[in-house]
């Protein structure tokens, strides 16, 4: 019997998350793991937008910024519990994506790229400049999620690193599960169809504008939740979270790993998150190496790292 790709992806993901801590030399690695999962979440949203629907965005860090600052500001100014602040951020991101997405998604290719880029930059500019709220470019502290304390009361004591490792793994697992459900659903098929040929998708009845908007909104929510988690884990956030380079980083992670598949994109997130940590000795050369990796992978492994590696393995079997 053929195992469904969904089951395989989720099992691999769960297994790796469970096994990896056994090899951690120090507590510090839990944080890197958590960072990988949090980036993986944003990137999973981009799989839906770029991988399924074929629409580019160079501004998704803007939604991460909204999610992050919702967690910084809503508990203080609105008295919301941090968990609800995450939901508020996601709702704001979804709302903004829905309003702006309608006109923006009529654009194609580079025109869509510049419009989304502009959106992201505008969000980061608001976060930088409205310093009476956001405290400006120096950043702002973020209240604790509070869940760790609850767990401790229940007798389950975790370090902050451990808590964020397991919590973000759980959230990523749910995010991946949702995205994989979508892949083989009517909506997912329609998204992949409009990616393949918009004209043909229209002629089989796909309301292309509506579906693109769906993908845009869903991916915005992923980015927003990812931003919320990042802010709460670091207990601090600066407007850089919404900046152009963060948007680029997300897209690069997704495409480098293989934007066509959830697992591939998360793999890309893992590589690009861990790489700078591994290369701290070569800090001077970090940019140079990152740039070279981006170019080389796109030239020689066009589908992305994971699909290319898998293909090579299958090739050997045959």
């Amino acid at each position: 019997m053929r195992l469904s790709p969904k089951l395989v992806s989720l099992s691999v993901l769960a297994l790796l998350a469970l096994v990896a801590p056994m090899f951690f030399p120090s507590g510090f690695y839990y944080r890197i793991g958590a960072l990988i999962f949090i980036n993986g979440l944003a990137v999973t949203g981009l799989v839906i937008l770029i991988g399924y629907a074929g629409q580019i965005s160079l501004g998704h860090a803007g939604f991460a910024g909204i999610g992050a600052y919702a967690c910084a500001l809503a508990p203080v100014h609105l008295g919301l519990p941090p968990a609800l602040a995450v939901v508020l951020g996601a709702a704001l991101s979804a709302g903004l994506a829905w309003v702006v997405g309608r006109p923006i998604l009529k654009l194609q290719g580079y025109y869509l790229a510049v419009a989304t880029l502009g959106l992201g930059i505008l969000i980061s500019m608001v976060l930088t400049n409205e310093s009476q709220w956001t405290r400006g470019p120096d950043g702002i502290s973020v209240p604790d999620l509070g869940l760790r304390g609850v767990l401790a009361d229940m007798g389950w004591r975790l370090t902050a690193g451990q808590f964020w490792y397991w919590f973000s793994a759980l959230v990523l697992f749910i995010g991946a599960w949702l995205a994989l459900n979508l892949h083989d659903s009517p909506t997912g098929r329609a998204l992949r169809a409009l990616h393949g040929s918009e004209v043909a998708a229209r002629t089989v009845g796909v309301d292309v504008a509506r579906l693109k908007l769906n993908a845009f909104v869903i991916s915005a929510v992923y980015a927003s939740v990812s931003g919320s988690l990042l802010a709460m884990m670091n207990r601090f956030v600066t407007p850089e979270i919404a900046g152009f380079m963060h948007s680029v980083e997300m897209v690069v992670m997704a495409v480098l790993g293989g934007v066509g598949s959830v697992l591939g994109a998360i793999f890309g997130a893992a590589i690009l998150t861990a790489l700078p940590q591994a290369l701290t000795m070569f800090h001077e050369y970090e940019k140079l190496l990152l740039g070279a990796v981006m170019i080389l992978v796109m030239i020689f492994l066009r589908e992305g790292l994971l699909p290319s590696i898998l293909r090579r393995f299958r090739g050997k079997e045959e």
């Binding site: 790229a113 990152l290 740039g291 990796v293 170019i295």
Partner: peptide
């Protein structure tokens, strides 16, 4: 030239990659 025919997303990543690469070289 080696990336001829690649999709728009890949080309964007390649030229942004080139941009970061050139920065990396320049800072050294």
């Amino acid at each position: 030239e080696p990336a001829r025919g690649a999709p728009v997303v890949s080309l964007i990543i390649i030229t942004i990659g080139a941009s970061i690469f050139i920065q990396g070289v320049a800072q050294i």
